[in-house]
Amino acid sequence: MAAHDEQIIADLGLRRESARSLYDYPNVIRALSVLCFLIAWEIYGRRVDPLLLTYPTAVVQAAFALITSGELRRQMADSLTTLALGFGASVILGVGLGLVMGRSRIASAALEPHINALYATPQVALTPLLMMWFGLGFTVKAVVIFLFAFFPILINTASGVRNVSASTIEVGRAYLASRTQILFKVVFPAAVPFIMAGIRVAIGRAIVGMVVAELFTAITGLGAMLTLYGNLFETAKMFVVVIVLGVLGVVLVRATQALERRMARWKETERAS
């Protein structure tokens, strides 16, 4: 009897064992997939003209060369300074103007046509004009980044402010809060989830703006490295820059997502009301 039971348990165990499939190890499949791709690239890439396509080991070598010479660090610092300045300005102005537009229907009606028109214009198209106005230096890059990032923040802030429930504001009034107190203690905190969502969209666009501005001005920054090495046909170094930009994008978007979660924890409940 007991032996029979054991048998059954063993059978069950066996069956459970066999039910474990490859799908339980998704990371193994992912790693294999990436590895196969890299090996295929390495083999194929070595056969192709190095002016056109490079291969992974060459990219790694190029990365070392760019890091040890300090060039990558210098250009990255340059790009990030511009990004911080342009993005910072767009956050401050976007949130400020968004608050005004959300609270005042007159301001909103007066500004909305212009904002919508500018937002609809692909900002890339304005870069040549901006280069004419601001030259090729730091200023034009900061302005392009600003223009790319400004509108999502502005539009989200304004709609966040409009979404603040009237009863919250009335409670504030009932407790005799002044207009500024209502703005900063009631409206602003309630709109934070929307503002953060706008900032998350804006950071991705700001990076695009940074690359575009640097590609065209082609003097300093990561985008300029792309243009430079593209003209020199140093494909391996171009890939290094592309990978750095990809990592930068992921890190910055993740950082804003983490900030969003921290600052806007009540998002879901707020939206339900």
């Binding site: 695009v208 243009t227 592309v242 930009l245 990809g246 994008g249």
Partner: peptide, 12 residues
């Protein structure tokens, strides 16, 4: 690829 700004791929 989604994380990489696609404009950066234009020169390549």
């Amino acid at each position: 690829l989604d994380a990489t700004p696609r404009v950066a791929l234009i020169p390549i």
